[in-house]
């Protein structure tokens, strides 16, 4: 296959991936219109994950890159999840074992500034 023909077949593949991404995008818009929470989560966020993976593997060529690149990027994602799960209890819970979250305005004046 000549270089030009080879390049043309690649271009066709990219256009095909783009078309699939657009179909997924349309589903991610129409899905939440139904108004059922589970369907919203799957169509909006589940499809976002699929679209991101497609862009990363097909457009960024991560599937052809050295494995250490993928591991490096996954490590960064892991750090993001670590941050989330380490901080989320403090933000999302109002009480726990031996602790209660006191709203800022209800704190006694003596404890302010510490």
């Amino acid at each position: 296959m000549s270089t030009e023909a080879h390049g043309h077949s690649h271009a066709k593949h990219y256009v095909k991936i783009w078309a699939i991404l657009l179909v997924l995008f349309l589903i991610s818009i129409t899905g939440p219109m139904i108004g059922i929470r589970v369907i919203t989560l799957i169509t909006a966020f589940g499809i976002a994950v699929v679209k991101a993976l497609m862009v990363a593997s097909e457009f960024m060529h991560l599937k052809f890159e050295k494995k250490f690149v993928t591991y490096m990027l996954l490590t960064m994602l892991f750090l993001m999840f670590l941050f989330f799960f380490a901080v989320a209890p403090d933000v999302m819970k109002t009480s726990g074992q031996n602790w209660v979250k006191i709203p800022m305005q209800e704190q006694p004046a003596a404890t302010k500034g510490h």
């Binding site: 960064m76 993001m80 989330f84």
Partner: peptide, 16 residues
């Protein structure tokens, strides 16, 4: 990789 942490931090905080 560093951008994942930057945007990841913003998005994770938002989701919380």
């Amino acid at each position: 990789g560093s951008e994942i942490v930057i945007f990841g931090g913003i998005l994770a905080s938002y989701i919380m």
